[in-house]
Design a protein around this nucleic acid. Structure first.
Lengths: 233, 233
DNA sequence: CGCTATTTTGAGATGGCTCAAGCTATGTGG
DNA sequence: CCACATAGCTTGAGCCATCTCAAAATAGCG
């Protein structure tokens, strides 16, 4: 494993913002590198939170499953983003699963190692705080969305965000560069895959999107935003 | 302001767990004391996040309002609990409002003061991390609830939690010791006050609750839990 | 080239919302 | 101390956005 390469990678992440390259070395040295194929998980809901991850390549989806098998898709993780942050605390259990949706490579640290290293660098604690705070804001917004908006608005909002987060400009519009099924969109927005399918069809007719198997392209972000914001039909 | 009294109070809070009384003194000394009548706010959504609060007496509700005036009730804060944690980060805006629902007294610190003091005591940063982490877990659970469960289950769940959090054992059942309107419950669970009213009526007939004006008593926590968990009708 | 996962589409059911109206505690001013 | 005002609550009727279930179409993949 190339130490310098790891250092260069880590200095681009928000968790380690403010650390010098020298300060990053211990982190780089102790990081393990794990990979996962499409469908494999880095960790599973209900298992001990023993490692903190930073994504290097690929995409990971964070899902939470109810006792009766219904799932909520909480977020997609992209490169340089943190996941598994429950490992920062003592005696936690992962309450979500992290599943690769493409071939994926992550750096990770075991709990005892990362907590010891981070406690020597208070700025990383600050950064982690900022990270979680962002997570709280994000969840509050989605909670409110679910509580107050209709399905079509929520799906539009979700697509707009995915576009910003993983949009890939092509001549056929802004392609969302994540394998994304109707079921995924449904689990993100608290609806059913049937309803998502009908909504996408409607938008296709209006020229807003172009959808295929596990693939969505946004033709008009503005149009989608209008749908997301417009309270009336 | 009685310094020792403040120290004794602060050592009971989760944010300051692990600090000695001597270490608490600077925190106690710099704390301001603010109070609010029923209906007044400690801070408003959209204003600069300039202070961190710990509740001393009373109850505060944390609400988020959409541009078109719909509200979500995110949580009730009780004594010794933290709120306004956005102030721990630089350049934040409160994205929620904190309104007293009873006569309320809080300790608070301005942003620059609390961040400086906390950075001298890494354990407080750890504690804050734990606090936010709990908030994330809580929100994830509620998000999933909203996405996958029916209204009746969600209201039952909300009541059970309020009972644990603010239940007051009386001969007329477990009284929720917070002024709690049908509207409040609706905003907590993503429904309307009409539906909440009908649900409470139904539960009253089944002997599960006793409800009045801004008042709910739980007669059977087990019964409510059964409603909350039972997927079918 | 058949198998399987994904998606589409239809038809019907319904949970919960909306709107309107009336009711009832609680507090207030006369 | 009572009449009235008000905020909160209940109740009814109708509707409709969304779910459910079933079945067919489609697209990758081995």
């Amino acid at each position: 494993m190339d130490l310098l390469q790891n250092v260069r990678f880590l200095e681009q992440t928000s968790l380690f913002r403010g650390l010098s390259r020298d300060e990053l070395k211990p982190f780089a040295r102790t990081a393990e590198c794990r990979q996962a194929e499409h469908g494999k998980t880095f960790f599973e809901q209900g298992t001990p939170a023993d490692a903190l991850y930073i994504l290097r390549h690929g995409r990971v989806k964070i899902v939470q499953t109810t006792h009766d098998g219904l799932r909520a898709l909480l977020r997609f993780v992209g490169p340089r983003e943190l996941f598994g942050s429950a490992a920062l605390l003592a005696d936690q259990t992962y309450e979500v699963s992290a599943a690769a949706v493409t071939w994926t490579q992550s750096l990770c640290w075991r709990r005892d190692i990362i907590t010891r290293l981070m406690s020597k660098h208070p700025v990383t604690m600050q950064n982690a705080l900022g990270e979680l705070s962002m997570r709280v804001r994000e969840l509050r917004r989605r909670f409110q969305e679910l509580a107050t908006e209709r399905v079509e608005q929520r799906v539009a909002q979700a697509l707009v965000e995915l576009g910003e987060q993983a949009g890939w400009k092509t001549d056929g519009g802004l392609l969302i560069d994540i394998p994304l099924s109707r079921q995924d969109l449904a689990e993100m927005t608290g609806t059913t895959l049937y309803t998502v399918s009908r909504i996408l069809h409607g938008w296709h007719l209006r020229g807003l999107v172009q959808a295929g198997r596990q693939r969505v392209s946004i033709l008009s972000s503005d149009g989608l935003l209008a749908v997301a914001n417009h309270a009336s039909a």
